[in-house]
Nucleic acid binder design. Sequence first.
RNA 1: GGUCCCAUCGUCUAGUCUGGCCUAGGACGGCACCCUCUCAAGGUGCAGACACGGGUUCAAAUCCCGUUGGGAUCACCA
Length: 475
Amino acid sequence: MGEVRVRFAPSPTGYLHIGGVRTALFNWLFARHEGGKFILRIEDTDRDRSTDEAIDMIVKGLRWTGIDWDEGPFRQTDRLELYRQKARELMDRGQAYWCICTPEELEARRKEAQAQGGAVKYDGRCRERSITSPTQPAALRFKSPQEGETVIDDLIKGPIRFDNSVLDDLIILRSNGYPTYNFSVVIDDALMGITHVIRGDDHVNNTPRQVPMFEALGYDVPRFAHLPMILGADKARLSKRHGATSVLAYQEMGYLPEGLVNYLVRLGWSYGDQEIFSISELVEKFTFDHVQKSAALFDPEKLLWMNAEYMKHTDPKRVAELLMPFLEKQGYDPTGPVHPNGGVEALIPPLRERARTLVEMVDWALPYVTDSVSMDEAAAKKFLTPEIAPSLQKFADRVKGVEPFSQETLELVFHAVLEEDGLKMGKLAQPLRVALTGRTASPGIYDVMELLGKVRTLQRIDRALKRIGSAPTNS
RNA sequence: GGUCCCAUCGUCUAGUCUGGCCUAGGACGGCACCCUCUCAAGGUGCAGACACGGGUUCAAAUCCCGUUGGGAUCACCA
C-alpha cells in the first residue's frame, strides 16, 4: 500500500460537535503517525440544511484544537458535475436505474411495511421498468447486489458480515440532481484516493451499501475503521441535554485545546496506564490496536481534571496569553494602570493550583488586575475587626520600610508582628487576606503581597483600616 | 420489529487476540488521614468491577454457545 490518505468529512449543518472533533482527531493522528495525508471535505449536498456559517465554525473549531489538514477544505457542491458523470457511468453499465416513485408514495409504503413488521426496504418496483429518459421528476437508484454477502474487515471491530439480501437500492441522485450521501462519499473517497475511512460507529450499516458501489465503479475499496460513539451520562447519544457539545463552547469555557484533545483521545483509546500525552507522543503512539470497541460515556469531571493538569504543566507564558481575552472580558485593561507585579504571567503559577479552567482562573485573578475589588461582606465582618486593627496597622507601618519588597522580607516582618502581638499565623493572615483581596481564599499571603506590590498592599490595608474605623462599634 | 455492533470498579481504562504471572492493575470521582496562613495543590490510605448461565480445559476476565442488557441503523439527512 502506498501513502495513507484519510479524511474528515463533516456536514455543515451546525456547530462542530465534540464527537466530530474526536473523529477528526483519530483521522489526523493516524495520518500523522503514518506520515500520510489528512484531508478536509465538507459534505454539503443537503442544500437545505448546509450553511456557510457552519463551515466557518468547523474550520475555526479544528484550528483551535490544532488539527491541520493537508488538502481541502473541499466542498461537495463544487463537485456536482463529477457525481452526475459517475452516476451516468453507472447507468450506462446497467448498475443504476431511474425511479419515478414519489417521496410521498415511498413514505406511505414504508409506513405500511413497518406496520406489518416486515423489512423496511425499497420494493424495487422501478428496477425493471428500465426508464431511459424520465418525463417526470425521477431519482436515480443504485442496483444493489441481492445475493451473496459483503464482508468488511474493520480495523477496530474485526470482520463484519452482511447478507446482501438486506441491501436495498439506494437513491444516489435526487430528483433535484444532487447526489445523496452514500453516493458522494464513495465517489469522493475513491477519487481522492482515500485509503482508510475512519468514521463514527453509526456508519457501519452504511458500509455494506457503499462497498458494492466502489466495486461497481471499479475502484479499490478502502479499509474501514469504525470508532465507538461518545455517550452522555445517561448512555444516550451526546446532545445539548448533557451540556455543551460544541468545541467552540469548550474554548469559551476556558479549556486548553491540549487538554480537551488529550481527554477526547483517551476516550476510546489507551496506551497502557498512561493518561497524559503530548501531541507528539500521541502521534508517535497512536495505532488502532488500542482503540476500544464499545461506546464511552463523556465525563465532564475527568475533563476538568485533565484540563487542570494542562494548566499546571503548560508554559506560564502560554497560559497567560490564553487567559488574556478572558481577563479583558472581565474588565482588565492591558494598557491601563493596574497590573499584577511581574505582569499577568506572574499570576499563573500561584493561580493555576486553584483553577481548573481559564474561566475559574480569571475569577482568582480579579483582585490583582483591577483596583475595584469587591469586598465579601461576611468575610469583612468576621475578620476586619477592631481587635485586629492595631496589628494590621503595625504590620503596614513596618512594610513601608521593607526593602526589597520580597516574600522573604515580608515573612520576616510578618512573623515579627505575630510574635510581638502574641498572635498565631492565621489570626493575622486571614484579616490581611481579606483586606488585600476582599475574600477569604487566595494564594499564600506573601504571594498575594508580592503580586500586589508595595503601594497597593499598603493602600488596601489602609482602606481596610479606615473601614474598620468607620464601622459602627458594637460588642 | 429487521440488520449490525458492544459488554472489566459510578466513569475512562489495563489485562482478552497469544488461557495460568489477576487473591483483576491504573486514572477520574468519592471517603479518611497527613501537610497547612485561607482555598487549592500535593502525599498516604480505604471502598469499588470481570452482566448472567452453560460448556471446553488440569486451569477462563481471557476460548465457544446461549441468555440478558445497552447502543447504532433502517430517508430523494449525513
